[in-house]
Design a protein around this nucleic acid. Structure first.
Length: 117
RNA sequence: UCAGAUGGCCGGAUGGCCGCGGGGUCCCGCAAGGGACGUCGAGGAAAGUCCGGGCUCCAUGGAGACACGGUGCCGGUUAACGGCCGGCGGGGGCGACCCCAGGGACAGCGCCACAGAAAUGACACCGCCAAAUCCUCCGAAGCCUCGGCGUAGGAGGACGGCAAGGUUGAAAUGGUGCGGUAAGAGCGCACCGCGUCUCUGGCAACAGAGGCGGCACGGCAAGCCCCACCGGGAGCAAGACCAAAUAGGGACGGCAUCUGACCUGUUUCCGGGUCGUCGUCCGGGUCGGUCGCGAGAGGCGGCGAGCAAUCGCCGUCCCAGAGGAAUGGCCAUCCUCUCAGCAAUGAGAGACAGAACCCGGCUUACAGGCCAUCUGACGCA
RNA sequence: GCCGCAGUAGCGUAGUGGUAGCGCAAUCCCUUGGUAAGGGAUAGGUCGUGAGUUCGAUUCUCACCUGCGGCA
């Protein structure tokens, strides 16, 4: 699974579908690659200092490794944005937040595609 | 035992499962790449960017001057420093000890609000004062035209002497005491302070002693300034190398040169070249890649020199290094703290904070703890 | 990585070594039948924080905090 690095990729995901849960904010969008699944992680200065931001990204990475391995779709970018609760939330709840957000986002992605066609 | 002072150190520990980044070895593969094993993988401040260096590029003939910026008791230490160590002076504390931008105010300029007589040329206000002189008034004696005049004397004032006392203020022209005087005054004397000279101790800052002066010299330089010393600029996105696509440049060769344009052989004829196009190659340079990039003013231990900062020698170790960026997630046991509880125990929490070229300092943030030395008080012997 | 600027009343801003003003806003009064406008009066300031220099600091010096900006 590739990692998102460019600013333009993050901006495209931010314009896509967004689900907010206590542990994180999930943004997804279809990417122009042929079938690659990509993940990006973001933590803004609003979360805290550098230690807090790094820790939040690590927990999101750990959760993504557990959840996204079985639930992701090809050709979709997933951006996981850290929130204030990302660091303090128990890991099982954080993983549950991610799984639920991915499921709901997929549903909405299908609806928007169905409405377009 | 309690209360303190100083210096140094630590910055939770161990294990299991699943993962991440960089080297290494081996295996598979033509290669790209993939796999296995093993190893290393955040800090005392990695932070702020306040100083100093290394390194790299740019500039520069040498030296100096000016400007600007910085530093500022003395000595030492260092690659260097505005750091550190030791000492001196001043201030604080019963003490251990702590704090100080701590050169120059006769080089010059400037400022000192309000108050106060006066804030650096001021001898001026209130005030104090003997004699002499002058003026006004009173006036024994005396004179007289009985209204007055007027000596001695008295009162007041002027001139003069003085700066002790007074109030204000952050700061007031040395302080205290004795003598002295009309009143006073360093006017004289003693002690203290100040200035200056000599001697002694010290590398020096400075300290001590003695003599002299007779007080003259207010404060502010983190106001301008003067003096001494230091400083070329930029920063790893520095810089070096490799090097796509596209556009444009150059060289060589092939084709075309019908009509044209320009250059050229003096002109015409006849030629040559360029403008066209294709191929190969070259150079610059962008995206990108590689290096710079960690064996160092290095860590640890020992011995030695030095009061110390620090230095020398010997032994030993190799100790993060990247791509927008790895060092994590979960669990268990122990440790520390908080809360509840008589207790067993239960619940919760684990400070400040994340390398990005490197190093020496400074500053700032920080739960909790450890060690050493010293001081004061109390108690016991 | 390097380098600047700013912080003053609720808001926007002056200011300078000697107890900080101005405009808008706020409160009260007048004016009007009533409102607005207008007029008058009043209150409101740790001068970002902490040290230092000075008799005295919003001002000068140092350290820190916050915000904004510039260059590569």
């Amino acid at each position: 699974m590739d990692r998102l690095k460019n600013r333009s990729d993050f901006l495209r995901a931010a314009r896509g579908i967004r689900r907010v849960s206590p542990g994180l904010t999930l943004e997804i969008s279809e990417n122009p690659t042929d079938g690659a699944t990509r993940v990006g992680f973001t933590a803004s200065r609003k979360i805290g200092n550098a230690v807090i931001r790094n820790r939040a990204k690590r927990r999101l990475r750990a959760a993504a490794r557990v959840i996204l391995a079985g639930a992701s779709r090809p050709g979709v970018d997933y951006v996981l944005v850290a929130r204030a609760g990302t660091v303090t939330r128990p890991f099982q709840s954080l993983a549950g937040d991610l799984a639920e957000a991915v499921r709901l986002a997929h549903v909405k992605l299908d609806q928007s595609k169905g409405a377009r066609t």
